[in-house]
Design a protein around this nucleic acid. Structure first.
Lengths: 155, 155
DNA sequence: TTCGCAAATGAGAATAACTATCATTCGCAA
DNA sequence: TTGCGAATGATAGTTATTCTCATTTGCGAA
């Protein structure tokens, strides 16, 4: 169980930098700080709006679902978060590390692994160019099954 | 405007093979034949449920939306169609050619181009293996902008 | 060829994941 | 501290899709 409110409190000089909000032209509000903190906490890298809402609620940090959606979208537009569309039909967000990467999603347990492959990136550019396109963005999702691990998040 | 009903009629020995349905263990029904014909017609390779419904309606071939959804899902499970999830949040289907390929989607006009790259495919297998996964399937979507064409489907 | 019945369909209600509306509240600059 | 525009919460609305159930249909058996 996640204990957001019982964890040692940080003040302004901490790691969940409110200045990120300022820089993005967003007012420093409580809901925004809570959502940002959840991602920067790092326990779960990939979260859907519903999951953010639930995690905050479980921690006693009530933020309305509408606000969660709004804040996630704003963070994504501000470049703080990156949005992904896994096959499931719902969006998931993750902190923007500044480094593009792709994803392997385990179909059994939902576990997400990240990877970056320069060869694939290069080929994509080449292919797009050959077809007369300029890449805006791209997403490579590998849907797979864990082999070595016992699926960690199996539910 | 698509004129499904005014196009030369084919009878049982035609190209929109009802035996595909039989082989898939699906009863040969009118709605199923109509949907299958629409895809085998080949005018548009990638269609959403809503688009299938609309194209059939416009051609005077009424099939309820619920049935369209059901039939598309059945066809996909039977291996007649392949389903894709472009970023838009709606599923599109295409005839299963038997050959895996990936997609470039123009963000301006919605035009979809297909490609296959052996190098990328190999790298994916390698990467999955390195991470201890066995690939079930994968999807590479490149979202881009047409450069050479005037966007053909621009609306 | 007709019968019977399980399977398929149509119409519309229900659901999931968002998005919009609007009255109230809050951050922050003066 | 005050004032105002931005942000929030509650909730209604949308979009894409699935479910329910009464009616119809394909097709093997008679």
């Amino acid at each position: 169980m996640r204990t957001l409110i019982n964890r040692p409190r940080h003040t302004d000089h901490t790691m969940h930098k409110p200045e990120h909000l300022k820089n993005a032209g967003l007012k420093t509000t409580l809901p925004r700080l809570k959502v940002l903190q959840l991602f920067e906490d790092g326990t779960e890298r990939h979260l859907s709006a519903e999951e953010v809402y639930k995690l905050l609620s479980d921690a006693g940090e009530l933020v309305s679902l509408a606000t969660v959606y709004r804040v996630l979208t704003q963070f994504q537009q501000a470049g703080l978060l990156v949005q992904h569309h896994f096959d499931s039909g719902r969006s998931v967000f993750e902190l923007n590390s500044g480094k593009h990467h792709d994803h392997i999603v385990c179909q059994q347990c939902g576990h997400v692994e990240e990877f970056y492959d320069a060869t694939i990136e290069k080929r994509q550019e080449k292919i797009a160019a050959e077809h007369g396109f300029v890449i805006d963005e791209h997403a490579l999702y590998i849907y797979a099954s864990c082999t070595k691990q016992p699926c960690p998040n199996k539910k």
